[in-house]
């Protein structure tokens, strides 16, 4: 899933301080699952913002709406009925959602309430870790299911580097060395020989080096 975190309140307040009526839009997908922008966080932020306004002797009216998915135009359409009563929109989705709303309502200021972080997985309740960079050319089949692109601080393809100590990365003892994990995993699979294979210099063109990417499924295109 795409993970995100709420922006500092100060920043959000800076964005919306000129306005009196906003729509606060949550998203029931990834950001709900990572507890950043679901119905609950919408409620909390709404209360907090209203209080911050009240403290300054101002009032803020907040229309709380949580969409099934902000990154689909059909869902965004649900906002149409409410948009005229709002001076601005504050989105609690990832960057995709914010942009989708901004596209739909070109006349309205749209602000992000979250910092979109990474594509990741839940480690345990309340803990998420980065797992994928979306490089467009997956090599997990070579690396025992552990991604050196996303999980090696240097993104090196034939690791580990000299900074790997006791299975940890030199940038922090809290960060696992991806290549150590890859080695352990290959060992468990009995595929130590794979480790010997040199991964050639990665072709980064499928990644964003070729500019913004697009997928077209011709069989689905109308």
């Amino acid at each position: 899933m795409i993970t995100a975190e709420r922006k500092p309140m100060e920043e959000i307040l800076d964005y919306i301080s000129p306005f009196q009526r906003i729509i606060l839009v949550g998203c029931n997908e990834c950001v709900t699952v990572c507890a950043a922008g679901g119905r609950k966080e919408v409620g909390l932020l709404s209360s907090a913002l209203q209080m911050a306004f009240m403290k300054d002797g101002k009032t803020l009216s907040v229309n709380e709406i949580t969409l099934e998915r902000q990154c689909d135009p059909e869902y965004v359409e649900e906002l149409v009925a409410h948009i005229s009563q709002a001076d601005a929109v504050l989105s609690m989705a990832c960057g995709c959602g914010v942009q989708e709303i901004a596209k739909r309502f070109p006349q309205k200021p749209v602000f992000p309430a979250l910092n979109t972080k990474f594509m990741g997985a839940s480690e345990s309740q309340g803990v998420w870790s980065e797992r994928c960079k979306g490089c467009g050319d997956c090599i997990l089949g070579l690396t025992g299911g552990i991604c050196p692109v996303a999980r090696c601080s240097k993104r090196i393809m034939n690791g580990p580097c000299g900074g790997s100590t006791n299975g940890k990365c030199e940038i922090s003892p809290d960060v696992d060395c991806a290549w150590y994990l890859i080695w352990e995993r290959l060992k468990a699979l009995g595929q130590e020989d794979k480790y010997e294979d040199i991964i050639e210099a990665k072709d980064w063109r499928p990644s964003w080096h070729g500019g913004p990417r697009k997928i077209i499924r011709e069989d689905l295109v109308e």
Binding site: P8, M9, E10, A52, K55
Partner: peptide, 8 residues
Amino acid sequence: KLLNEIGL
């Protein structure tokens, strides 16, 4: 934390 952030 939230209270702190909004100055309460």
